[in-house]
């Protein structure tokens, strides 16, 4: 009976498959051989539903159009503009000078006091966090997933840095590095974060250490989707924990690893790291990353609207340079995809 079928469908399926809901009168008329009356608004997905959906989405769509679409378009157009000090407006360069901002970006990279070291430093902080800390974060997530001794306590402790905020952690680290560590290691001197020899290694240590918790919750919840039968079978076969991690869990959570690795590569050149939290605008040149350099051109005492075009062009150029790197990483990750399924 259609009505009972509808009730079954309504309880168990998505509404689009239950859209052809009928009223009881139609069934009686069909059985008598009469053409069923079309009952107005029989489906719940009628004109009113359309109005409802539009109203519910309107604000979000407008917000998206302004703060995503318009913002990105404006960012691209800004890369071809220059600041007119007289009018206070950003104006397009003439045709002959349309790519001057990009020219400035590339010229700045390769001059003797240029910005190329900033790129490498940013990549160093980012990659050290990725190459060293990311595998460790997977291991930590695995240990929590296996519910080893005190796993709840460790789970909370690993989650605390993301709760307490990077700014608080950065400043505590700065205080530790400039007061606690020199008291133990006299060779660090008075202010190692302002010393060319020690500043970068300390910042790398910071990047690695505080990247180790990683995305603990997402990792453990994805690992918990690994079928228990597989784990039990492995135990019966006598595989060790290392083999279970490498050959069972990791292959099954490989799609998550792919997504996270790609996400990590996105900020390779533009990440500012903890520099602003630790130094504000006074970071020594031997610690500066390109992301920090761009940020201080837009915000702070050294900022000016005259830099807007240059920073937009830098952002665009870095985005274009990053695209092949991200695609190469994606290809590499897919090449090593074990394609494990269960």
């Amino acid at each position: 009976m259609k009505q009972s079928k509808f009730c079954h469908e309504a309880a168990n399926t998505a509404p689009d498959s239950a859209a052809q809901m009928s009223v009881p009168a139609e069934e009686g008329e069909r059985l008598q051989g009469k053409k069923p009356r079309k009952v107005k608004n029989a489906s719940i997905f009628n004109g009113k539903a359309r109005v409802f959906v539009i109203c519910m989405l309107a604000y979000a769509v407008v917000n998206f159009a302004i703060f995503y679409v318009w913002m990105n378009i404006d960012s691209i157009l800004l890369a071809f503009k220059t600041y007119n000090g007289m009018s206070g407006e950003q104006e397009f360069y003439g045709v002959a000078h349309l790519f001057d901002n990009f020219k400035e970006f590339f010229v700045n990279l390769f001059t003797s006091s240029g910005t190329l070291p900033y790129f490498f430093r940013g990549a160093l902080y980012h990659l050290s966090g990725f190459l060293i800390a990311y595998p460790v974060s997977l291991i930590f997530s695995y240990l929590i997933y296996k519910k080893l001794f005190l796993h709840n306590f460790f789970k909370v402790m690993l989650y605390v840095p993301s709760i307490v905020s990077a700014m608080v952690i950065s400043i505590m680290f700065k205080t530790l590095a400039e007061n606690f560590l020199p008291a133990i290691f006299k060779q660090l001197g008075n202010a190692p974060l302002s010393d060319e020899t020690y500043a970068t290694p300390l910042l790398v240590i910071y990047s690695v250490f505080f990247a180790m918790p990683g995305q603990l919750i997402i990792n453990t919840s994805t690992m918990s989707t690994v079928p228990q039968e597989l784990i039990e079978y492995g135990k019966l076969e006598g595989i060790t924990m290392r083999k279970e991690f490498m050959h069972v869990v990791l292959p099954l959570v490989y799609p998550l690893i792919t997504v996270q690795c790609l996400g990590l590569f996105v900020g390779l050149f533009t990440a500012a790291g903890p520099l602003y939290a630790i130094y504000a605008e006074m970071a020594p040149d031997y610690t500066v990353t390109y992301g920090y350099y761009i940020f201080t051109r837009v915000i702070g005492r050294n900022a000016s609207e005259a830099y807007y075009g240059f920073t937009a062009a830098s952002n665009l150029a870095i985005g274009l340079i990053s695209v092949p790197i991200v695609y190469f990483t994606k290809w590499l990750l897919e090449r090593f995809d074990p394609e494990a399924e269960y």
Binding site: I66, F67, Y68, W70, M71, N72, D74, S75, L78, Q90, G263, V266, T270, I294, F295, V298, I299, Y307, Y308, T311, A312, S314, N315, L316, G319, S322, V326
Partner: peptide, 12 residues
């Protein structure tokens, strides 16, 4: 990953 520049965010 598509990120608009901070400058355009401020302008808007």
């Amino acid at each position: 990953p598509v990120t608009a520049s901070l400058a355009s965010g401020l302008r808007i």
